[in-house]
Nucleic acid binder design. Structure first.
Length: 257
DNA sequence: ATGGTAGAGTGTCTA
């Protein structure tokens, strides 16, 4: 079984690329983030023609998550218990959706950005990650926590760490929140299969960051111990980030035996 | 320090 995660930055503007990606790599399950679409706006027809079913949640133009599967979608759950909501008054957000696909419990996660360390959004991000950890501790079986984590776990995951001295994504509390999931037994399964320096999954649209390979590694697949033991390979589809009309994130693909 | 690009949808907000 081949699973993937991709922050598509609008599924409507990118649907042709999504369909081509699914076919090019023979993907069974794709978790997407930043669909930027309500459920009634999803471009489903082409996906259905290709044999995929879709479970999605989206309430506004900024986030939205979905799972696209051709091996079934069962027990769909939007959000996890105690998942925080940002804003005063709170704004309905769709940042997590879980479903069982082909026997694997997959969570498509769009971790809050945090904006700046001084912004209330940063504390919301840490709270969100803490509640995710609690929820994840209760998950059992073959579980994959996949998505855009908006955390660069090491300095090597940032093109220029000095430039991020006052930024989110690299602060110790964010990194500790990511590490806490690993301490609970989850395994980040993509890094062992994608070695080398300057391996990224996201390149800002500004200033030709992709062309100069000035990116971040912030998209990951965390597997429960039993799922991690099934991983046979992984890769980042870096080519998908090239050219006109690309998302600012590349897809991450994982193979399971 | 600032600004650069992209996508939502018309006002800016988000990233």
């Amino acid at each position: 079984m081949r699973i993937a995660t991709w922050n598509v930055n609008s599924i409507r503007s990118r649907i042709d690329r999504v369909e081509a990606f699914l076919q090019r790599h023979d993907i069974d399950v794709l978790a997407v983030q930043e669909t930027k679409a309500r459920e009634d706006q999803l471009p489903l027809m082409g996906l259905q023609v290709l044999g995929y079913d879709v479970a999605a949640a989206g309430y506004n133009q900024w986030n939205g998550v979905a799972i696209i599967s051709r091996v079934g979608i069962e027990d769909v759950q939007v959000g996890f218990p105690e998942m925080p909501v940002f804003g005063d008054p709170p704004v309905a957000e769709a940042r997590a959706i879980g479903a069982t696909c082909g026997g694997v419990r997959i969570w498509s996660l769009y971790v809050p950005n945090g904006r700046t360390p001084e912004d209330p959004h940063y504390l919301y991000k840490l709270d969100w990650l803490a509640k995710l950890r609690t929820a994840a501790q209760s998950f059992s079986g073959d579980v994959a926590l996949v998505g855009d984590w908006n955390i660069a776990p090491t300095d090597a995951d940032v093109f220029d760490i000095a430039q991020f001295a006052k930024s989110t994504h690299v602060t110790p509390p964010e990194r500790a929140a990511f590490q806490a999931l690993l301490e609970d037994g989850y395994v980040e399964v993509t890094r062992p299969h994608t070695p080398g320096p300057e391996v990224y999954t996201y390149w800002d649209y500004y200033r030709q960051r992709f062309e100069r390979n000035r990116g971040l590694r912030i998209d990951f697949v965390l597997g429960s111990p039993s799922l991690a033991s099934r991983v046979t390979g992984a890769f980042i589809d870096r080519d998908e980030r090239a050219g006109q009309g690309a998302s600012d994130h590349a897809p991450v693909v994982v193979d399971l035996r």
